[in-house]
Design a protein around this nucleic acid. Structure first.
Lengths: 221, 221
DNA sequence: TCCTGATAAGAACAAGTGTTTGACACCCGG
DNA sequence: CCGGGTGTCAAACACTTGTTCTTATCAGGA
């Protein structure tokens, strides 16, 4: 109204009312409103107008509007970077696949290859899917730290670490999980299993991928 | 219609299929199925049969079935309605608080007291928040099974178990996690720590809460 | 003023869907 | 064997609701 020369100002308000009413209605009733419900709720008198706006909202990606289906509107919660449909404090982390030429390759293709974690559990150190990844444990070299074969580790990316940290590191293009420490002033990666030997940590062939901050286990024996 | 009899054997199977399919459908699609959708999903060939069952389910109080409204079924019984904003394959499980008078009390009030898990990781055994809960480990009695103090266990509810299962059980109103097994034909709950002794499992004071199917750890040392 | 585009309305159409009716098959107790 | 209850089906009916078409209103520019 106050905007001179802007006919959109009026339409924007109507489309906003439609959007907000749909959100409110679904939240209140747990099912979608019909076009005529929205008419009343948004103060529009024609189903056709509502229909137009719903299509626009669908084009904008704000809702999902199935053609012909009754009461089947879905609100697409798009928080920009935030994955659609996830609460703000939850992050989906990619599961690391293999590592070639020093560059980890993430296995995104499968839903089961990603994990949801509550970001709040890690303070503010993991707020996006860029900050961490998942590494599946293979072998029992860390069994004394109670990390078992088949466990999924949450690794927060960082390129340095402190003595005693359990870290994921790249050794000659192979990802491994060990405890970082020193012996006689020399840095080592220590397995937590007497059957294995410490690995000298020489900065040439080794790279720190990150620190293990969490663990998921779905095979309980 | 007047409820006359109680011949359940056959109808219960179909009505269960209807109920489960409606739950699944809503969980998957975020809106209700139509009667004809349910026909296909529940293996019934007549909309009329489905209609009958829906009315019965409404009478039982399991769903809310609005006369005349399309796709407006609500699952009622329900912390079971899918949490708004979560993807279909993700379930938020409540963290068990304390146990009083034999009844576990769930601590729902705090977001940090609940966990998100990918339902797909557990096959179809966990599809709703009523199927499982989270139990925080206190103590080291299961350390040999690599379950540490402070770990969070995902416990699928069930009231029986097999030898060798790691289960959560109620012993004299106290929740505990042990491995179930037999010694000399007598059932015991075995700790996985030589410092502790097996606990005889007598059905009077003991109740099985569920089986441990997953583990989350957020304190890595 | 007249035209034009945007917005909204109203009506009509068509499809999806809830509901009802009637019928058939089956089981079970007389 | 019979009759009632139950579970299912098929089809028809009627209402809800998505969709489209046409028209009305209004603001701004030539």
């Amino acid at each position: 109204m106050t905007n001179s020369g802007k006919t959109e100002s009026k339409s924007d308000k109507a489309i906003d009312r439609v959007y907000n009413y749909v959100k409110l209605y679904i939240k209140t009733n747990a099912y979608s409103p019909s076009v005529r419900d929205i008419c009343k709720g948004a103060g529009l008198k024609s189903t056709s107008s509502v229909h137009t706006y719903l299509r626009k909202l669908d084009d904008m990606g704000l809702i999902e509007y199935r053609p012909g289906m009754r009461r089947a509107i879905i609100i697409k919660n798009s928080d920009e970077t935030q994955e659609a449909g996830l609460p703000a404090d939850v992050v989906r982390l990619p599961c690391i696949g293999k590592i070639t030429a020093g560059q980890p390759v993430y296995a995104f293709e499968d839903e089961s290859d990603s994990f949801l974690v509550n970001a709040s559990l890690f303070g503010n150190s993991i707020i996006g899917s860029e900050d961490a990844f998942i590494l599946k444990v293979s072998g029992t070299s860390m069994i004394n730290a109670h990390i078992m074969d088949g466990d999924y580790l949450i690794v927060r990316k960082q390129n340095s670490c402190q003595e005693g940290d359990i870290i994921a590191a790249l050794i000659e293009d192979e990802a491994t999980v060990k405890r970082f420490g020193y012996k006689n002033g020399i840095p080592y990666l220590f397995p937590e299993n007497d059957m294995y030997s410490p690995i000298p940590f020489n900065t040439e062939g080794c790279r720190i991928l990150g620190k293990v901050v969490g663990l998921h286990r779905y095979s309980i024996y």
